[in-house]
Structure formats: structure tokens, C-alpha cells
Amino acid sequence: MSAPAKPSRWALWLPVVLFVGFIALVAVGLWRPASRDVHSAMIGKELPRFDLPPAVPERPGLARGDMLGGKPRLLNIFASWCIPCAAEAQQLEQLRQLGVEVDGVAIRDKQDDLAVFLARNGNPYARIGADPVSKIQFDIGSSGVPESFVVDARGVIRYQHIGVIAPDQVPMILARLKEAEQ
């Protein structure tokens, strides 16, 4: 500001300091590309109460109570209309064969479409709940399909995996499940 006849020195350098701060901030933002994923804030918290009807006749529906006790389980949020989900099915099947209990929630799905999807891609799910209005996603902090959650025996969400479980990520998921045993 033009105010004083002799502006104090530090005031004149203030814009430079602020500018350097700005450059540092955006440089960090630029070189450490932030993940665009929206992470759940429910990790370490209890699975909220839900009770979903069966999505297909051959599997029971899914409620919170079904996921308690025993060993950690994998909760897979998927849909038949989701193309990446089809690519993920093999890895889920692999996990099932390795003894993992996989529960599914079909988001905004139709029974016929889902039946075709399962027939084509396999059915690794012990239970499949139908959520036609994405409600469970808002409860557990899921923002898309597919997503997978590791839930321990006490019903605490231990880990969220956003996107497809790639073939090379299967051991990592197994490790997460193992971790959840403690």
C-alpha cells in the first residue's frame, strides 16, 4: 500500500513470502498427484446396521448380523452393469477358493441382469444383498463400484479397496484379511 512515506521493509517483502508459500504449495500438489478416490471414513469403525433382501434366488440376502463371528469377511460392492466388475470376478473366485468368505451387495441392479452376469462371470459370493438405492454405500463410505471392504469378526471395517482387485493384488487382500484376524 502506498500509505506511509517510508513503507516498512518487511511489509514490502510480505507479498514475496506469500508467493513463495503459494508456489511451494502448488508444487507439492503438482508433484505428489493426489489420489482422486474418495476414501471411506468408516475404517476402524463398526459396520452400520443393514438388512438387504436377496438379489438372486440362489443366494440369501445380506444383513449386518450375517457378517459377524467366525473369521474376517470380504464385502464386495458390485453391479452387473459395471464393466470393471466383470473383470474382477476372477480374482474374487480365486479368493473364494483360497477360503475367503465373500459377501456381495449388488447396487442398482435387476435380478435378470444379475443372473446373466453371475452365469457369465461366476458366482464367488456366499450371500448377495440387493441395494437398489445405493443406501449401503452412503452408510459405509463407498463412492462407486466395484469396492471391497475387509470386515473383521466383530463387525469392524478394517480396510477399503477402491476399484478392481487386480490379479496381483490378491495376496495383498489375503494379507489384509489375515491382519483382520487379530
Binding site: 517510508k6 521493509r9 514475496v16 508444487a27 508433484w31
Partner: peptide, 23 residues
């Protein structure tokens, strides 16, 4: 990064010049 570099160079230089000369 390129635009950021240009920004830092142009505006940074101008602000330093300002700090030196404004008095």
C-alpha cells in the same frame, strides 16, 4: 510444472523487484 515455472519466474521476479524498489 512448466506453467508453474513461468509463473514463479515472472511473478516472483516482479514481486522481488517491487520489494526492492517500492520503498
Amino acid at each position: 510444472s512448466f506453467i508453474l515455472g513461468l509463473l514463479a519466474l515472472n511473478i516472483g521476479a516482479a514481486l522481488v523487484l517491487f520489494a526492492l524498489r517500492a520503498a
